[in-house]
Amino acid sequence: MKRWFQSKSINTPSPVGAILSYLVLGFWAVLILFPLYWLIVTSFKNSGQVNEGPFYIPFVDFKPTLDAWKYILVGDLSKDTIRNFTNTAIVAPISALLALIFGATAAYALVRFEYRPRVGAILTFIGCVILSILLVSAGLTWQIALVVSFVLFFILLQTIGRRFKRALGNNDIAFWMISQRMLPPIAVVIPIYLIFQQLHLLDTYTALIITYVASNLPIVIWLMRDYISNIPIELEECASIDGASRYRIFWSIVLPLAVPGLVATFLFVLVFTWNEYLLALFLSSAKVQTLPLTIAAQNATRGPQWWNMSVLILIMIVPVIVIAIILERYITRGLLIGAVKG
């Protein structure tokens, strides 16, 4: 009797435990899958079949139609769908990858080095920013204002900025970074629009990628900081005794050890950029519209077009699922666990 409650090894549950685990996992899986099933079913309905009440199983209680799929993929909307899909497929992975690269290096730096930005320098910087704004409102072009205040910043930094000895630390830098995500997008979208308008970058991939990288960096940094600080420092010390440079250490020791974290983080950022709506709406005027716009647009003057929406959501989620399935094994393969596992 007892063996039902006994586990064979530390990570393998007892038979009873396994059954209970499966029950819970199965229950949650149903909770996740049923809404998706409903999406699939809805994508094969027409408006009448949606409005007349719930129908659950195609061919049994309603006659499925391919109208919505045709409309999205080969009909009126196909041109938009394909263009927006391509844009999403270009922008999201590139942004996610760049954010991961910059974010992981920054996270490593924040964990392993000590930064002490002087309060005086920061205040000087803020002062110069305010100055440049005043200059712009006084009628100068922003280019000149920026150069003037930058030169001033440089001079002041060498003089006044050094007077104050008080300095901040790594945690303050990290908090400043994460605080960049605190303003709701609705408040920043028009200023960001104006920045790219001035740079003549509206409706380009560059604008979207820059914005996505910058807005996702804080998340990458915060997540990667924890993963990296879990990596035993002894490994790096050994390597540096052997004469490896910092870059080498980072590249060949830290990164491989952080793979589970990197993969999980990449997946998030990919998902966030893949699905981003408001910034994409404003930074694109025609050419670089992304797929979330098409989904939101299905709620037009005639109310939500559930069937079209379902098709689009399904189309949009498939590539991410594929990527998730491929990457999931890397999350699983915790390298530190080594061969002893199981």
Partner: peptide, 15 residues
């Protein structure tokens, strides 16, 4: 060029 209905006004305006 089409944008979601709910945001049409803001798009016209900002542009």
């Amino acid at each position: 060029i089409t944008v979601p209905n709910s945001e049409l006004y803001q798009k016209v305006l900002t542009d």
